Computed example of a mutant assay.
Amino acid sequence: MLNQYYYRELLKHVNILENGAILLGENISVDGHGGRRIRVVTHAHSDHVNQLSDSVRESEIILATPVTIEMIELLGYVGRSLRTLFKMKAKALEYNQVFSTGVEKVTLLPADHIVGSAQVMVEYKGYRLGYTGDFKLTKKTAVMKNLDVLVIEATYGNPTHRRPFKDSVPGILYELVNYGLSYYGQVFIYGYHGKVQEAMKILREKGVSEPFVLTEKIYEITKALEKYGFRIANVFKEGPGRRFERSVVFKHMMSASRRRLDGSALHIVLSGWEFREPFRRVDDYTYLVALSDHSDFDDLVQYVETAKPGLVVVDASRNGDPQGLASSLREKGYCTVTLPGDQESQIEEYCL
């Protein structure tokens, strides 16, 4: 068992601020503004681009994968007045490519959360510090090993947040879409950016060939992703008079509450917050499908057990159950703290 002095030393190089900024090493702030030289963005979801405008003004470099940088621009996370400055400071970093600050070495690794999402590994003064960001544990996700500190998300950190059925969800989505196309001719699918593209890919791979009709923003993002190898055939931008005999229409989740329940179409809402069953009927014309882009509780624990880090830090600055995950990891013998929080008392109590 490593001693408490070692853990205290590690926590001098890792912290999490209330605004969600993950501080690694001396110069790195990830997924939140931390007043550091380098701002890293793991992916283009709103809770991970916190105060990006402040970072554009104050940081020297904004690091992200090429896909994430493009999505940041398309989704308007940087205001018009800062777009030129963002383009000057944004540096695209491919997976497994090393960026040196002169003090740290930064590497982005695949996370399989949404298109372009990444984990962050920082090598600093002989220490290896890793942050998962949001991730889904699949064969595409790199597990960071030999870390002194692992910072891990806790979106589904509650031990009840298990999806034993998760491998069956893509097939269920395909069957529901086929049913909707056969019975109604039109299917509406609602989800967040990134997740709707995942659904498109699943359906095309399983043989759905009907036209995909996309809202303007979803269309822009989907077409922009083509240069990075994400190609979906037979897609069209939504517009007046555009109607196919059979089609699948993709809309942002915010549109789901305005869906028309008049029997003219089947509606499918993609949600990660479903743990009892892979899908359920919401009303006569709507199904909720448990397609998640996050790891469930079992996958979070499996990641830690595979990585075997010296110290685990659970991110308590975002939604989820960090205390539930931390408690479960402590029971398995891992020195685990939640941040933001009282580092000293947690080390004394949990890292004997």
Rank of each mutant, 00 (worst) to 15 (best):
N3R: 11
Y6K: 12
I16Y: 00
I16P: 09
I16C: 00
I16F: 01
L17P: 02
H33L: 00
R36K: 14
R39V: 02
V49I: 14
L52T: 09
T65Y: 09
V67K: 05
T68L: 00
I69C: 09
R83C: 08
K87H: 15
M88V: 13
V103T: 13
V106R: 07
T107Q: 08
H113D: 01
V115K: 00
G116C: 08
V120I: 13
K125L: 15
G126L: 06
Y131M: 03
D134S: 06
F135V: 01
M144H: 03
K145E: 15
K145P: 06
L147Y: 10
D148V: 12
V151S: 01
A154T: 10
Y156P: 00
N158Q: 11
R163F: 12
R163H: 12
R163M: 13
P170K: 02
I172Y: 09
Y174V: 12
Y174A: 14
G185V: 04
Y190N: 05
E198H: 11
R204D: 05
V213Q: 10
L214C: 10
E216P: 11
K227L: 12
Y228Q: 07
I232D: 02
I232Y: 02
E238N: 03
G241S: 08
E245L: 02
V249N: 14
H252I: 13
M253S: 14
S255C: 15
S255Y: 15
A256G: 06
R260V: 13
A265P: 08
H267C: 08
S271K: 04
W273I: 12
T286F: 09
L288Y: 13
S292M: 12
D293Q: 12
Q302F: 10
E305P: 06
T306Y: 15
L311H: 09
V313C: 03
A316N: 10
D321G: 07
L325A: 03
S327V: 11
S327N: 14
R330T: 01
K332P: 11
Y334M: 13
T338H: 07
L339F: 14
E348T: 00
